[in-house]
Simulated scan of single mutants.
Amino acid sequence: MNPIEWLAAALGVANIALLVRRSVWNFAFGMAMVALYLVVFWEARLYGEAGLQVFFFAAQGWGWWLWVRAGGEESRVPVRWLSPLSRMVWIVATAALSLNLGWVMHRFTDAALPYADSAITGASIAAQILLGLRRVENWILWILIDLASIAVYLTKGLHPTAGLYVLFLALSVMGLREWVQAAGRPTR
């Protein structure tokens, strides 16, 4: 058992629980979690996800800044839906990023699961940006990411992390429900 992985998983639980509640304090736990997961994923040769942790660290800081500006530290931040055109742009851009990253990792590295890793990485980048922008669709992406991640982590023997992502999946469903309620009906 890797104590770094267990600590990262515990920080992740706090991070997502605070996200569901739309609390700005989620970002402090998120930054600590991703710093530890960089080490865990690098050791597992999941290079896309290791690199993703660097992006997540910066995105957590950016998200924290945006959320404080949007709702203050004590209140729950407002959330809303993407427009239909924006949804299509996000889907196409995420797919293009994922496929290209998968090809690069397959061709130029010894990545364990280059295309699965890149799909999770590309979708996670999109979801994290949408989270910072407080868009409801981030939770839909996180649900898909959680499902794929559970399979990858079980394949790589990262059992505490797979367990964390089962919990993330449940919390993501809760987050989607709460944010849908807070945002109201999507635009058509």
Rank of each mutant, 00 (worst) to 15 (best):
N2I: 06
L7M: 09
L7Y: 00
A9H: 11
A10N: 10
L11T: 06
A14N: 02
N15G: 04
I16R: 02
I16V: 15
I16P: 07
A17H: 01
L19M: 12
R21Q: 11
V24S: 01
W25M: 08
F27T: 06
F29A: 15
A35C: 07
V39I: 13
V40I: 07
A44W: 01
Y47I: 09
G48T: 10
L52E: 05
Q53N: 15
F55K: 01
F56A: 00
F57G: 00
A58C: 07
Q60Y: 09
Q60P: 04
G61P: 02
G63A: 06
L66M: 13
W67K: 05
W67A: 02
R69P: 10
G72N: 10
E73P: 12
S75A: 14
R76Q: 12
R76M: 11
V77P: 06
P78Y: 04
R80D: 15
S83N: 12
S83I: 09
P84Q: 10
S86C: 12
M88E: 15
M88T: 15
V89H: 08
I91T: 12
V92S: 08
A96R: 04
A96M: 08
L97S: 08
N100C: 02
N100T: 11
V104R: 08
H106G: 14
T109L: 05
T109I: 07
D110Q: 11
A112N: 13
A112R: 15
P114G: 08
A116G: 14
D117N: 08
S118N: 05
A119K: 03
T121E: 06
T121Q: 08
G122D: 03
I125R: 00
Q128D: 00
Q128W: 01
L130F: 03
L131W: 04
G132E: 01
G132C: 03
L133P: 07
R135N: 08
E137Y: 08
N138W: 00
W139L: 10
I143N: 08
D146A: 12
L147K: 10
S149E: 10
I150K: 08
I150V: 14
L154T: 10
A162C: 02
Y165H: 05
Y165P: 06
V166P: 00
F168Y: 14
A170P: 09
S172V: 00
M174R: 12
W179D: 11
W179N: 11
V180K: 10
Q181E: 14
R185T: 15
R188E: 15
R188C: 11
